[in-house]
Amino acid sequence: MKNLKLKSARAAKDLSQEELARRVGVSRQTINAIEKGDYNPTLQLCIAICKELGKTLDELFWEPEP
């Protein structure tokens, strides 16, 4: 499932995938894979992304029950 919340939060901060990747210390492809829902990041990486985007884990990675 695509992570549109991460994509919009990144866009709101006016960050490219490359820039966010550089800041959290991973490759651009990893950020791309997370946004596309192709890769489940570890908690450590989730926290690093949240800190960089000024969001909480719930805001970026929690999927509400349907």
Binding site: V26, S27, A33, Y39, Q44, L45
Partner: peptide, 10 residues
Amino acid sequence: ARPDYVDERQ
């Protein structure tokens, strides 16, 4: 230059 670079997926 990048001591923090550890890409878990890679």
